[in-house]
Amino acid sequence: MSEFTLSDLEKIVATRAHASPDESWTAKLYAAGQRKAAKKLGEEAVETVIAAIASDRANLIDESADLLYHLLVVLKIADIPLSDVLKILEKRTVKTGLEEKASRRE
């Protein structure tokens, strides 16, 4: 059995975005637009932070899954493929984190 990836989830989000909003949470978010999807992403980010601060491992895992899912919905609405985000991350890993941050200030 192969490992589930963010690319797999991105494909599922893309497929479900065009389903009936009566049958799919993804379609409902997609139909509601970027404002609603981004608001939900923010809520999930806050819940993830709260779980991390509380050292609640199980909840942190659940909230992280919600956060990643909602991020992919926001990216889908913006028509930004995950590969564009991964390219930036790849480029940033060529340098150390401190070097990369310093180069952004220039």
Results as ranks from 00 to 15, higher is better:
12 I>E: 01
13 V>H: 00
15 T>S: 09
15 T>Y: 05
16 R>A: 10
17 A>N: 04
17 A>Q: 04
17 A>V: 05
18 H>P: 04
18 H>M: 14
19 A>Y: 08
19 A>C: 14
20 S>L: 11
21 P>G: 04
22 D>T: 12
23 E>R: 13
23 E>K: 10
24 S>Y: 00
25 W>I: 09
25 W>G: 02
26 T>K: 04
27 A>C: 07
27 A>T: 03
27 A>E: 04
27 A>G: 04
28 K>S: 12
28 K>L: 12
28 K>W: 10
28 K>N: 08
29 L>M: 15
29 L>Y: 11
29 L>F: 12
30 Y>S: 03
30 Y>E: 03
30 Y>G: 00
31 A>Y: 03
31 A>I: 02
31 A>D: 09
33 G>M: 12
33 G>K: 11
33 G>T: 07
33 G>E: 11
34 Q>V: 09
34 Q>T: 09
34 Q>A: 12
34 Q>R: 08
34 Q>D: 10
35 R>Q: 15
35 R>W: 05
35 R>F: 12
36 K>D: 08
37 A>N: 06
37 A>V: 04
37 A>P: 03
37 A>C: 09
39 K>L: 09
39 K>P: 00
40 K>R: 08
40 K>L: 06
42 G>A: 14
42 G>C: 05
42 G>N: 10
43 E>C: 06
43 E>Q: 14
44 E>S: 15
44 E>W: 13
